[in-house]
């Protein structure tokens, strides 16, 4: 039973990765660019896979090989706690949102290691910048998830989904999803919060990557996008709850919606310098998430 479920999660993850890659290639159309067809990601990946992977001088070889693997694995572990149907998740954790929080913290470490391992300046700059931003981003994330746990009286995602039968958390806690999107942008290294990669430092942590290593890193980023979106869908949009259609389909639809939102936000929000972003995170987003928690608490009482 659970092996079947695990296979299902894996297939869903693969489909989500492909969908996310397509969204990324559709997005330029918003700015008058050319949108690519659904096969474009596969072509790009094939091109990456037949290319050689260059080695840098004196790298931390083990971490260089395995950083994308940890990133992928953390996305899959995060996805495992999301209920795919009412009362059914691959991992019935009583502390689902804490598991997700741990995955977030470990993802920041993975990105740091990815930048550390090639022993090259630009990846290292990306790693340090990302560490500086990734740490404080975890605070709004935790506040938002804790706020969602208040009405459910449990840290389990199954209970959180269950508590949204009457009204979704999106309605009860309207600030939650926007704040959580900031977290998603950070975890998936996208747009305004992509301080690890980014063109300003020549690709940052993946500046030295090529071939299969780059392919795996891109896939892992998209896998994290899928996991994050599924979790956001479960926490704010009621996950598998919905009329007529079966639960997994609802979850998939909502996940795709959050993925599109994240891709859009990454595309449309302007970048700023890391030092300014640090200020924004601590001085604006943290008090905002305090307020969000307080309001959600009042509503839940």
């Amino acid at each position: 039973m659970s092996v079947l479920l695990a296979a299902g999660v894996l297939v869903a993850l693969a489909l989500g990765i492909w969908l996310g890659a397509w969204f990324d290639r559709l997005a330029p159309a918003l700015e008058g660019g050319r949108a690519a067809g659904p096969m474009a990601p596969l072509r790009d990946w094939a091109a990456l896979l037949i290319r050689d992977q260059a080695e840098t001088e004196a790298p931390d070889r083990m971490n260089r090989l395995l950083a994308p693997a940890w990133y992928l694995a953390l996305a899959a572990i995060g996805l495992s706690v999301v209920p795919v149907a009412e009362g059914l998740a691959l991992w019935h954790s009583p502390v689902g949102i804490v598991v997700w929080g741990s995955c977030e913290a470990l993802i920041v470490i993975t990105v740091f290691l990815h930048g550390w391992s090639p022993n090259a300046p630009f990846p290292l700059i990306g790693a340090y910048r990302y560490a500086a931003i990734g740490l404080p981003v975890m605070l709004p994330s935790m506040f938002v998830l804790i706020a969602a746990a208040l009405p459910a009286e449990s840290l389990s995602l199954i209970a959180i989904v269950d508590s949204q039968r009457d009204s979704w958390n999106l309605v009860r806690q309207p600030l939650g999803l926007p704040l959580f999107l900031v977290v998603g942008l950070t975890l998936t290294l996208r747009g305004p919060l992509d301080f690890a990669g980014g063109v300003d430092i020549a690709g940052g942590t993946s500046a030295e990557e090529s071939g299969a290593g780059l392919f795996l890193w891109q896939v892992a980023r998209l896998a994290t996008l899928v996991a994050f979106s599924a979790l956001a869908a479960a926490v704010f949009l009621g996950g598998p709850l919905g009329p007529l259609l079966p639960g997994p389909v609802w979850l998939a639809l909502k996940t795709a919606l959050v993925m599109a939102l994240t891709v859009l936000a990454g595309r449309l929000i302007a970048r700023t310098t890391p030092s300014r972003m640090l200020h924004v995170l601590w001085v604006w987003l943290l008090p905002l998430s305090f307020a969000h928690l307080a309001v959600s608490g009042m509503v839940a009482l």
Partner: peptide, 19 residues
């Protein structure tokens, strides 16, 4: 479960700062 998972969460952050 809570203490276990929260240990990962706390220590990951602390060890990143340590590194």
């Amino acid at each position: 479960p809570y203490i276990g998972v929260a240990t990962v969460f706390m220590m990951a952050v602390e060890m990143l700062v340590m590194a």
